[in-house]
Amino acid sequence: MIGLTALVCIVLAMQQSAGYATYQKANAMFVKQDFAGALAGVEEALRLDPKLVPALTLHAKMAMASNRFDLAGKSLEAALAVDPKAQYAQFLYGMTAYMASDMQAALPRFREAHKLNPADVRATLYLGLTAESLGETTEALALYQQAVRLEKAVGAVHVETLLPGARLLLLLGRLEEAEVWLQQAVQIAPQDRDAHFEMARLMVRKGAASQAAAEGEKALALAGGMTTDEQIHYLLIRAWQGAGDMVRAQSHAAALRALETPAQKE
C-alpha cells in the first residue's frame, strides 16, 4: 500500500514537472514520425526539466534512430542517474552498446535490465543475443528458451522470439530441436520470410533438398523480414542442386549475381 502511494506520488510529481507536458507532446509527435517536431519538443522539455527521465529516454531513442549511439548513451546515463530502476532506459542503454557492436558493454546493461524486470521479453532476448555473440551459447540458449516461455505465459509467442533459438540450435547441429522451434515459427507466422528461410536451411542440413527448395522458394516470394534475396538465392542454388534441378539452381545463381553486381562494382 505504501509502495502504491509512493508510485502515485512519483507519477503526480512527474506530471507536475515543468517539462512533462512538453515531453508528452514531443512523444506524440515521435509516434506520428514527426521527428523534427519531436526533437524540438524533447529538447524544450529537457530545458524545462533536465532530469525528466521519460524525456531523456525519448531523446536517446531519437539519437539512436540517427545512429548517434554515443549521444543516446549520454542521455540514458543521465536518465539512469536520476532513476537507476528505469528498466526501459536500462534496456535502451544496452541497445546503444549492442547496436554499436560493443557486446562487452552491452552484456552488463542487458543483465541489469533483465534483473529489473525478468518478465521483459526484449531484455531477455537481447541478453541472449549478446551472450551468444560473446561465445556463451549455453546461457544464450537458456535465455532464448526463457523468452519463449515468457511469451507463452501471456499467450502470444512471436516468430522473432523463436528464430534466435532456432538459429543457435542449427549452429550447434541440434537439428531435431531446431525443427521443433522452426515448425512453431512457421505455424505462428506462415507468411514470415525469415521463418521459411531458416526452415529451408534446416532442410538443407537434413539432406531434404526438395523440401529445402520448397521452403526457400516460399521465403523468396514473401516480403519483409531480415533475410535478403541474396541469402535466399544462395540457399536455393544448393537446394535445387541437391534436388537434381540444375536449371533452377543456375537461375538462382544468375539472379544472385544480377543483384550483387551493381553493389560490387561501386
Binding site: 538459429r167 536451411r201 538443407v204 542440413r205 533475410t227 535478403t228 541474396e230 541469402q231 535466399i232 538465392h233 544462395y234 540457399l235 542454388i237 544448393r238 542442386q241 539452381a249 543456375q250 545463381a253 544472385l256 549475381r257
Partner: peptide
Amino acid sequence: GLESGVALRDDGY
C-alpha cells in the same frame, strides 16, 4: 563460387 557452395557461409552471409 556460388554454384560450388564456397562463396558464402551457409546462411548466405
